[in-house]
Each structure stands twice: as C-alpha cells, then as structure tokens.
Design a protein around this nucleic acid. Sequence first.
DNA 1: GTAGGGTTAG
Length: 538
Amino acid sequence: MWESKCWEEDTLLAYKAGFGMGCLCGCFLDPYVFTVWIISVARKLFDEMPFRDMGCWNAMISGFCQNGNAADALDVLIEMRSEGVKMDPVTVASLLTACAQSNDNLSGTLIHLYVIKHGLEFDLFVCNALINMYAKFGCLGHSQRVFHEMEVRDLVSWNSIVAANEQNDDPITALGFFNRMQLSGVKPDWLTLVSLASIIAQLSDAEMSRSVHGFILRRDWFREDVVIGNAVVDMYAKLGAIDSARTVFEGLPVKDVISWNTLITGYTQNGLASEANEVYCMMQECKEIIPNQGTWVSILPAYTHLGALQQGMRVHGRVIKNCLYLDVFVGTCLIDMYGKCGRLDDALSLFYQVPRMSSVAWNTIISCLGVHGHGEKAVKLFKDMIDEGVKPDHVTFVSLMAACSHSGLVNEGELYFHLMQKEYGIKPSLKHYGCMVDLLGRAGHLNKAYSFIKKMPVQPDASVWGALLGACRIHGNAEWGKLLQKACLKLIQRTWATMFCCQYLRNNREMGREGDHCEGLERFHHFKAGTCSCGDYW
DNA sequence: GTAGGGTTAG
C-alpha cells in the first residue's frame, strides 16, 4: 500500500520540481538525469520503510556505490551503524568498490581492518573487491597478498589479479598469473582477453597479438561487448599495426565514442596526424556519437603535429562549450597546441588557468618556451615549479635541457643534467643523453659531444648520433658528417627523416602555412622507402 | 542486496 503511494508522490514531486510530462520523457532519454531521479525515489522509499532488513540497507548502499555516489553511501552506512546494524560481506564488497572509484585510500584501509576484525577475509566477494581496490590505489603488493591468502578463487579473482598487474605496468607478472590461471583449469572469459590484449601491447609481442585476435574471433566475442573490440583496436595501434587496428575497428558490430577515440589516438601516436583528422571528421558525421574529453585529448595533439592552429582553435571553442577548458588533460593539450604553434602568450595564459599540481602542465610550457628559443624563461619556470612544490620528473629535464640547448645555455644544461641525478635520483635515459649531445654539439663543442657519447653507459641510438650529426650540419663540418653517415647509415637515415620532417613542419608554422605538411611527409616516406639518402639533403 | 572491463595530455 505505502509503496504505490510513494511512487505516486515522487512522480508528482519530480513533476513539480520541473519535470513536466515532456521533461519526464526526457528523463528516459538522458540516462544521467534518469538515474539521479530514480535514486532519489529509492531513497525516499527507503526512508519511509517501517522496517529495514540487511537486504534493504545493502540495496541502498550498493545503489549509491554503483552510481559513483560514495558520500551518500557513507551517509546510509552511518545511519545503519547508528541503529546497531553491522556490515556484512555484501555491504563491505559494495563499499570497497566505491572506495576504489573515489580513490579513498583511508576508508578502504579502515574497511579492510574491519574485514579482518570481523573474520570476513575468507569471503570470495570481499577478497575480489580488495584485490581490485588495492590495484586501483597502485598497491600491487597488497593485491597480491590478498590473492595469495585466498582459500577459494574464482574466475573474477584470477581476472582481477591479472588486471591488477597489467594496470600497474607489470605485464610479465600479469602474464605469469594468466598462465597459472590456465594451469589451474580456470577458463578465460572475454574480460580476461581484454587484459591480455593490453599485456601484449605492453610487451610489444606482435605474434601473440594475432593469436589473441584469432582466439576472440573463434568465440565471436566481439559481439559480447564493445569493450573487447576497443581493447583489440588499441592493442594493434600500440603495436604500430595501425592498418590492422583500422580493419578491426571497421568490423566492430557496435562502436562507441571510445572506439573512435582509440583509433584517433592510434593514428596520432603512429605519426599519422592527417589520418587522425580524417577519422575525427568521419566521427562527427555519426550523429549518435557525442565527442567527449577523450576525443579532444586524442585530436588536439594531431593538430599540434600538423601546426593546424585554426582547427585546434575550433576544438578549443567546443571545449569551452562543453566546460572542459579547466580539465587538466584537455588544458595540457591546448597549452601544447598554442605553444608549439607559436602562440606563446595564449599558452602561458592557459597555463596559469589550469590546475598545475602535477608536472605535466609545467613540462609542456617549459618545452614550448624551449622550442621557441626562450631558454631563460624556461629556466625561470622550472624554478617557479620547484617553489610551488611540484616535483620534476624525467620529462621535465628533457624539456629543460632541450630549452637550454636551443638558447645556448651550455653551463645551465650541464648543471641540470647533474642535478637530475643527484638531487632527484633520476637515471638518465637515451633522451637525456641525446639532449646533452645536442647541447654540446649545437654550441660547437663537437669533440666534447663525441667524447660524451663514447663515455655513455648505454648503447647510443639513432637520436643520440642524430644530435651529433645535426651539430655537424649546423657548424658545417661535412667531414665528420660523412664519417658518421658511413658509420651508422641506417640509424642516421631514420633520424634524418624525422629531423627533416620536424624542421619542415616548424618552417611551415613559422611561415603561417598551417597544415601544409604534404611535402615534408613525402620526403619522409622517401627516406623510409630508401629511395633517397641523407646525402641528398646534405 | 555483493566482486572483474576499453581510449586520453608533456
């Protein structure tokens, strides 16, 4: 009796609150509005219940948790505890998931203590939720400990521990767990394959990628969920097999916005910015696909590479319309786009608007200042970064040393190379060594640069030799250049192709020829195909 | 009434 009364009252309440019949129909079209409304109805029903059993409390708590509303779930929990009702495994499993989603490490740990105190640590659902929660917090050791102490494990336990390792950048251990899972007789499902696709991409194992693809095709799992299709598109894109990624994408029975974003990102990250733009244009023709934050973050770097300022600005307009201009990911892409296209004032103004607690926005603006020869300003921003308590990372030093190099700040560059190791404990990568060679070579210290390469504790790659070759070119030292060319022709050709392409794009940008990159790309393909040598451009 | 999933910035 009271149930039907509540339904009628709430429908009326919603109507009075502005949901006329038209709006109410709108609720059913907009899942978010509908969810908010239906949860408020559930809460009202719950409040008016004369008696609540464990099922009712859990239904209310899990309802809030599943909709990402951890604060309201916590309110219900406090009410439940105040009535002397204890949490059972169902309550705990729901709350742990909410802690993971809201990155609430403290509450999650407190609930884990409750689990141990009340002997719930042998419950399968609780353990699986714990594995996943600790993985989301980045505490892989805790996830593994929970997994090892489990007496009974099911498919979800195995999938959780495989995904935990995969998502924390340990593909080898993840693969080890996958093999153990098979040995223990547990059959993988499509969610196992989602993790496996990502593991293979991280391991760059092209041969295994084909096996995984075939395994999924034989079971017709692309029809299970769009997620598995997106994972395979991403796997091929990350392996550089962008054509395979495109074929899988085109064959997907259902495509969502993430499918499109994945393909756009794939093209951008494989250096095919024009193709990324083509896919973005195709996406806009699909009326059922609404671009989101991921879309802007996928397409903006493509416009940066093309120097296509006008197109980038158009995206900026859409970002503002969607209230995403303060999003740290989108904001960083916009800073980079304006900065690399020569609009440093706009880049700086955006930089001071976006949240900058992490190093990424700082690295971007330091890099932008550096490529335009404002080394001293870049150094000043690095000092500001330290003053604001932001910890620099390996990318900060690449940007900073490159900035020093382009402005002839040799002493400063050397100083930061040492500071990075001594003060911040960052081991130099090939990129840092390349920066040092560029710094010394560009300043004319060719001998010093060569001795530096010889003393490197790791094998120099094309970028390191390329930096020295570039210096030979700048200082007109053809003799050294020819020697280097003979010594490592293959490496140099690749480096030259990249260098030429970058230089060409930069020139276009400076001349205001946005997006006119065809000639650069054509020459790049000649290099790749071996139909011309770097000597042709010497 | 409970647990597992895909893309993204420098």
